[in-house]
Simulated assay, not measured.
Amino acid sequence: AGFNPEFTGRENVYLNAAILGLRKEEIDGCFDDIAEFADIGDFIDQPVKMYSSGMYVRLAFAVAINVKPDILIVDEALAVGDAVFQAKCFAKFREFQERGVTIVFVTHAIDLITKYCSRALLLDQGSLIESGSPKEVVDAYNRLLVGSSARKAVASASEPQSPARTGDAVSREKWHGLFTVNPNENRYGDGRAEILEAGFFTEDGSAVQTLVKGDICEIRMRILFNDTVVEPIMAYTIKDIKGFDITGTNTWFQNVPADTYYRGDLIEVIFRQVFLLNAGSYLISFGCAGHEGGKYVVYDRRYDYMGFDVVSETRSVGFFDLESEITVRKITNE
């Protein structure tokens, strides 16, 4: 923001706005809006060196949005803001987008990229390595994080080369043809484990790709191990059609005891839950990974494995229905 730490917030507003091209009369006219948006109270007349990082960002952002920019660059600025301030900032972003203002959003928060951006660029050590839709670039970023490049899908019909050691007689009945799988899924990993197939099942074991909100369902995945893997983590993630992460979990989060698996072992993982997503279309992803020597290793990750739909007889706002019970009581007599 170019603030002088020895100056007060008020003095820095005038200095910074002047650098951005505003005359004193123009700054006078928008100062109250800046102070109201920053919402730092009497600290506006305290030296900036006394500010917390959050207060500093609040004031800097308030100045930037009130000088009527044609291009607004936001570099990780919202990482220190509280939830209310962030909501206020994103409301301002939407207002700017409607006015045709270009917003360059520099961040590692991939959920914000998929939710608010229309185009994304991925930089690695100063070099541009991906450009395209937010979803495409986020997928590339995830591959970069695990140090793995996309690979071709392995043959899902592979058979284990040694008896399963899971202790349960895992059914070998194939699920192929039960689900419409995304032919353009984003798959990568080192191949030491393969997610052979996955899908949704009702309580009676029927395969479904359209779910009813409020019903109990099972999300199942089958994994073949091609090498010895100690305590793998099995996971699923649900996104909206724009690629925004909505929910998900894994065996590590849920403290499910992990085993050691060997070449040829075939296992089935079942996530059972009441499905509370609102009606709409979604994507589900699956993963098998682990921690080895302090590093996070992806054995197989199948992003956007398949789409599915949720139907509902009731309506609510957003992604989830909290199943509220509403009571209205009259507490006064007129």
Rank of each mutant, 00 (worst) to 15 (best):
Y303Q: 11
E95R: 11
E11Y: 01
L196A: 05
K88M: 10
L128Q: 13
I73Y: 12
K115V: 00
V74R: 15
Y56A: 04
A77Y: 13
V181S: 00
A87V: 10
G290P: 02
R222A: 01
D245T: 05
L277T: 04
V269G: 08
R222E: 02
F31G: 00
S118G: 04
T327R: 14
R329T: 13
V48D: 06
A109M: 05
V74T: 13
I73D: 10
G177N: 06
G29V: 03
S53H: 03
G126Q: 08
F201K: 00
E136R: 14
E36T: 07
I284L: 08
E268S: 08
A169K: 10
V137C: 07
P47K: 05
G293Q: 05
A155H: 06
V48K: 09
R94F: 06
I27H: 01
V181Q: 01
D124H: 05
L322D: 12
G147W: 08
K115E: 13
R220C: 00
D259M: 05
L145K: 09
R172I: 01
W175R: 06
I326P: 06
V274T: 14
F200Q: 00
M234Y: 14
D300P: 04
A87T: 11
C288D: 09
V208Q: 06
G100I: 09
Y299H: 15
Q125V: 10
P160G: 13
S118T: 09
R272N: 11
V13L: 04
I233F: 07
A18F: 00
G294C: 03
F308M: 02
R151E: 10
I216N: 06
S316Q: 14
T107Y: 00
K174Q: 08
K24P: 01
M306Q: 13
E325T: 15
L128S: 12
F61H: 07
S281T: 09
L72A: 03
I103A: 02
S149I: 12
T228G: 07
R315H: 14
E194A: 06
D139K: 15
K239M: 02
L277Y: 12
L15I: 01
L112I: 10
M55V: 07
Q46S: 09
V230M: 04
V297G: 06
S149N: 15
